[in-house]
Amino acid sequence: MSEPLENTPVGLLLREGPRAVNLGLAGFADALRAQGVPVVSVDWTPPLVDDQTAAILDRLL
């Protein structure tokens, strides 16, 4: 990462505050929303295969 950090994506996160996409516990999105954080809550459901199987398929296909 090159200096200065303030213009990198992480620097911008700190400077501008979070705007979030939430995947998983819906309560986390509710708590962010209650604080005034812009947040979109994804209705996440498990894919048919887990990460390990998906990685094998990625290599094969």
């Binding site: 705007r19 939430n22 995947l23 998983g24 516990l25 812009p38 994804v42 209705d43 498990p46 390990q52």
Partner: peptide, 27 residues
């Protein structure tokens, strides 16, 4: 609600953070 992260980003294109708490094997 959107069903994927990409669909979520279409709703909030200015997002700068993903908050992820899905089960570990999918995370």
């Amino acid at each position: 609600r959107p069903r994927t992260l990409a669909a979520g980003l279409a709703v909030l294109p200015q997002a700068n953070l993903a908050v992820i708490s899905v089960p570990g094997r999918f995370a």
